[in-house]
Design a protein around this nucleic acid. Structure first.
Length: 753
DNA sequence: GGCCGGGGCATTTTT
DNA sequence: TGCCCCGGCC
């Protein structure tokens, strides 16, 4: 016991040993939050609390997995395994499967991912003959999700004046109806979306006193990680479970709340003490990760936010370097600067590539850095993009599995009814859907008994449907005797998917085959580990239950390999790197344009920036460009207000600072329309060939020796001038890009002197 | 059923 | 600019 407590600092220890009532642990960035959580659980276990009585909720599988293995090291493997520790969604789906009959579901329910639910919403909008320009599936989906996160059922939605008024104002008066249909369709399909996993738990506890009582008795200690990211339902569920014994410990950092757009409610953590008035507050204020400079800079930044729990984060590490701010003339040059700086730091200070991260506000920014890094052969890895389970070929196979486990699954049905092609087109599917809606049954039920449901199809189509029905039925009965891996194999062989994929010899086709193989491999691994554990029945339903809650974050990346990491700031939360480049620090990008008019959203953007800076252990570099190519055109931009939010004593501003203050310099003689001002280098070379070679001392405001700043190439010196009027050209030697020919008609530059 | 091209569009996304 | 979605066409 003592050895556990010895490894903690005073404030960590205080938080760990207090378990008699509600507690709120405010854990600053890098302050050992995970340590407190894991040690607290280990402490409880060593005090004789059964793992069965501890509920520990996280947001990511990764976090749960890491904590589990750390606890296993502190206590033992077996005890750690028996903890009720996992994501909100996975723990709750486990309970929901167990209690499914209490709310009219079966324990084999499928989980719709975001794409599934969007597709279903899309079809409902279509079926209602609504205009999908007005009822944009994504917006409707967001609206439904918000409702569920705020504990509003369709019934409540339809009688909520405020929501109705809101929808009416937006000319989307039928949103409530869509929600209601969506709700019922999910039920008919035996499917739940991610939000349902929370909402149904809440409803289950609310409507079944004896069930709630059972879980209250079981979960005698409740711990929640990242509390600043919880939404209203999650908060209410915690309240439901902890209401009697109040042994609940929530851990988080209000300064790192960056997911409000997904329903996270920062009020949950700010006002936790209102929910549980006798809450003890613990603050972990010592940052172990970063230099003093970084911590102080981050403090000075976050001080500008009004809504927060007061705290003083400090570091006992070295002072470290100032935060370097690098200004660039273009996004293009920004990319060059970052790549060059990484190469330089690696050479001079013996850093490894994996010690660097480039963090940006939007995924679209990644491309330019990819190019600049590739140009000088710096290996990199981009996080984000399509995850394994979102790839078409993987989703196809999974859809068959879903049909086997739950043939009522509407989205799986629609996905595979005609894949591989079997001549069942949209018209037929439309008829099936219509019949299903009329009779309030699933699509599968309709094709099981087409005559009973008056399905208006000709004999040929009916035969095709029967063949499909037989195929799935065969898998279903096979699944009763086989293990999951055998069923999986049967699916890819007997549907013809494997042949279909093998026939494609393109590189993409090859990678599709590999992905399907990888899926089968993971199924094999799933089955064999369970067999080793002596579990006799390993069913597909268990495999699906597991993978439907996995994400990209969970597919292992070889973190050992040395590469520069690129990702959005959101994706970087919880990670740390020696050196962090936060790029694109411009108004309307970071903070994003959309948050411009909202105080709350600006504060969230500032927290996002805070998260970015506090990822760094040793160095932070901030960059911005004065011109950026965005949405097909070049825009001039201003440095982000957030740079100015940092106390200047921690900043190392660019030595060409004066550039920002120079009001306006001579533009190109005749300003061109924006689209024409952007000239790609290839075009320039073509123009070059049709030249006349008259050398000149000066043209317009340019002379040999003039220093200019070009929109994309940056600072440079005019070496020679030739031609006249339309053909006037300058040969310019740029500091970063060597000598370039500019056709003055198009070139966008400013004269410095 | 698959391919092509025009039009619209364009944050962040732990589950 | 570049991607995605849809509709039209073979």
């Amino acid at each position: 016991m003592d050895e556990i407590l010895e490894q903690l600092n005073d404030s960590q220890r205080e938080a760990v040993v207090y378990n008699e009532g509600p507690s709120l642990v405010i854990a600053g960035a890098g302050s050992g939050k995970t340590r407190v959580l894991t040690y607290k659980i280990a402490y409880l276990l060593k005090n004789g609390i059964s793992p069965y009585n501890i509920l520990a909720l996280t947001f990511t599988n990764k976090a749960a997995r890491e904590m589990k293995s750390r606890i296993a090291r502190l206590v033992d493997e077996d005890t750690a395994r028996r903890l009720w520790m996992g994501t909100f969604h996975s723990i709750f789906s486990r309970i929901l499967r167990r209690e499914a009959d209490k709310f009219g579901y079966k324990s084999n329910f499928t989980i719709y991912d975001a794409q599934d639910s969007k597709n279903l919403i899309k079809s409902i909008i279509k079926e209602l003959a609504l205009d999908d320009k007005i009822y944009k599936p994504a917006s409707v989906q967001a609206r439904i999700s918000q409702a569920k996160n705020a504990i509003i059922t369709p019934e409540q939605y339809l009688s909520d004046r405020e929501l109705i008024a809101d929808d009416n104002n937006n000319r989307r008066e039928r949103t409530g109806q869509i929600y209601s249909i969506y709700w019922n369709r999910c039920r008919a399909a035996g499917a739940m979306d991610f939000d349902d996993l929370l909402l149904y738990i809440y409803l289950l506890f609310k409507n079944n006193a004896e069930v709630l009582e059972r879980y209250r008795n079981q979960f005698r200690f409740i711990l929640v990680d990242e509390y600043q990211d919880t939404n209203s339902v999650q908060h209410e569920i915690v309240r439901q479970l902890a209401e009697e014994h109040h042994r609940v410990c929530v851990v988080g950092d209000d300064a790192q709340s960056i997911y409000s757009f997904r329903g996270a409610n920062i009020g949950n953590i700010l006002n936790f003490r209102k929910t549980f008035p006798e809450t003890k507050l613990f603050k972990l204020e010592r940052n172990y990760r970063s230099t003093k400079t970084i911590v102080n800079a981050a403090n000075s930044l976050i001080k500008k936010n009004e809504e927060q729990i007061p705290k003083t984060i400090y570091s006992e590490n070295a002072a470290g370097e100032k935060i370097k701010v690098i200004s660039a003339y273009s996004d293009f040059e920004e990319g060059y600067n970052v790549a060059a700086r990484i190469a330089e730091m690696r050479m001079l200070e013996k850093y490894d590539y994996k010690d660097f991260a480039i963090l940006y506000r939007t995924n679209a920014q990644s491309r330019i850095f990819e190019e600049s890094l590739r140009k000088i052969n710096i290996p990199y890895r981009i996080y984000g993009g399509l995850s394994f389970y979102q790839r078409k070929e993987v989703k196809d196979v999974v859809a068959y599995m879903r049909m086997v486990v739950n043939p009522n699954d509407e989205e799986a049905f629609k996905r595979i009814i005609n894949y591989p092609a079997r001549g069942i087109g949209d018209t037929t599917v439309g008829k099936i859907t219509a019949a299903a809606t009329t009779h309030e049954v699933s699509l599968w039920t309709v094709i099981s008994e087409p005559l009973k449901y008056n399905l208006p199809v000709n004999a040929g189509t009916a035969a095709k449907l029967k063949k499909f029905h037989d195929l799935i039925s065969r898998f279903i009965s096979g699944d009763e005797t086989q293990n999951a891996y055998e069923t999986g194999g049967a699916i890819i062989r007997e549907t013809g998917m494997l042949t279909d994929l093998y026939n494609d010899k393109t590189p993409e086709g090859l990678s599709r085959v590999q992905n399907v193989e990888e899926l089968l491999n993971s199924l094999y691994e799933f089955v064999s580990t369970r067999m080793e554990q002596g579990i006799a029945e390993i069913r597909l339903v268990d495999f699906l239950a597991e993978i439907s809650l996995l994400t990209d974050q969970d597919t292992e990346k070889d973190e050992a390999s040395s590469r520069v990491t690129m990702m959005t700031v959101h994706a970087a939360k919880g990670l740390e790197f020696k050196n962090v480049f936060v790029v694109g620090l411009e108004e309307n990008l970071f903070p994003s344009e959309r948050s411009r008019d909202s105080f709350r959203e600006i504060e969230e953007e500032r927290r996002l920036f805070y998260v970015a800076i506090t990822r760094a252990e040793e160095n932070v570099v901030l960059t911005y460009a004065k011109n950026r190519f965005r949405n097909g055109k070049s825009d001039s931009c201003h440095p982000s207000r957030f740079i100015g939010n940092i106390d200047p004593e921690y900043l190392n501003m660019p030595n060409n600072q004066w550039v920002e203050n120079t009001p306006q310099i001579n533009r190109t003689p005749q300003p061109q329309p924006r689209t024409e001002q952007y000239v790609n280098p290839r075009k320039i070379t073509q123009i070059e060939r049709s030249k006349n070679e008259v050398s000149r001392e000066s043209i317009g405001n340019l002379s040999v020796g003039t220093i200019i700043i070009h929109e994309r190439f940056g600072r440079g010196k005019v070496l020679a001038l030739t031609g006249e009027n339309e053909n006037a050209r300058a040969s310019v030697e740029f500091e970063s890009f060597g000598t370039r020919q500019l056709l003055l008609k198009f070139a966008k530059y400013e004269v410095v002197k």
